[in-house]
Design a protein around this nucleic acid. Sequence first.
DNA 1: ATACCTTTGAAGTCC
DNA 2: GGACTTCAAAGGTAT
Length: 399
Amino acid sequence: MPQLDSGGGGAGGGDDLGAPDELLAFQDEGEEQDDKSRDSAAGPERDLAELKSSLVNESEGAAGDAGVPGAGAGAHGEAEVGAEALGREHTSQRLFPDKLPESLEDGLKAPECTSGMYKDTVYSAFNLLMHYPPPSGAGQHPQPQPPLHNKASQPSHGVPQLSPLYDHFSSPHPTPAPADISQKQVHRPLQTPDLSGFYSLTSGSMGQLPHTVSWPSPPLYPLSPSCGYRQHFPAPTAAPGAPYPRFTHPPLMLGSGVPGHPAAIPHPAIVPSSGKQELQPYDRSLKAQADSKAEKEAKKPTIKKPLNAFMLYMKEMRAKVIAECTLKESAAINQILGRRWHALSREEQAKYYELARKERQLHMQLYPGWSARDNYGKKKRRSREKHQESNSDNSLHYS
DNA sequence: ATACCTTTGAAGTCC
DNA sequence: GGACTTCAAAGGTAT
């Protein structure tokens, strides 16, 4: 587990909210990277690499052999990794067999999508993004800190960052780094030191907070209409002088365009229930009924899952990939991002794992009763219900 | 209008 | 406990 392995302080199990698979992922990642860094790959790995390069060559051949800079078959490293994003190792998984290669070839041809792909995008982006404050009294803290902190190599440039958490990490007054990740802190204490700076969670905690960290950067969850921030946040227990007991996310409030009216901006994980308003008020009672139903639905917003590390990474890097590769199809972009994700170093991935872990913690604190089960099967259930509804409607009509 | 595609990770369900 | 399923984001595409 990347954020936990410093000093082998106990991989934390599942209680630290770290994904049990993270270690595996990093192991695989490391091997993959080793393979990339090493020229000699043995066994199936080599076969895979050959397959990859053959696919890359195939793609290049389609693009013409007129010297695609940086994408040469012999070029190891960034360009090759980028090309791997294009020539999938699994041909069966190739996306948009007709379109993707073309668009990706564009990416290959485009300098901004090759040479800049990893130098200017990923690594610099990480340098800009993540700046973990050194744990206060780092020497006293045997807590697992991700081995990602190398201030010398990752200076803070003070560049706008993409998520509140990112911003938090580079805040001039950062809250202490997670004091203890691996230790059991999952019993939702509502006051973990590392999160108190992100959100003020309870009225009681409000008074304890010295200040609320401000995030000038865009919120982690965009305030796009598609995310549905019209719903009112579940009414928290307000304390005097604490106007936003549970939701004190300055950017979100500012983003509302209604300063001082934060209640209209719920946490981004909350989206309105997807149920359409079936209000057909034929009479007052019916309308009242519908209103109460709508109110009930409004009180029961859909709380979405917290984003995992890769989702956070995708969310952050998507725009860059789009800009570099002039791609817009999310499926293709996600493929590239998946490759880039694997190309990231452990430290770089660890940053996102850490972010995701904090997101999960925050999510748990904001919605203590929430479970992924709440949304489980909703999508398919929706379609099934629709199907059944249509069927039942038909049966009703025919009965 | 909406499901699908595509990715990884987290968490759920099922056996 | 392992295998499998579902959801999270995103936006173009297909139905």
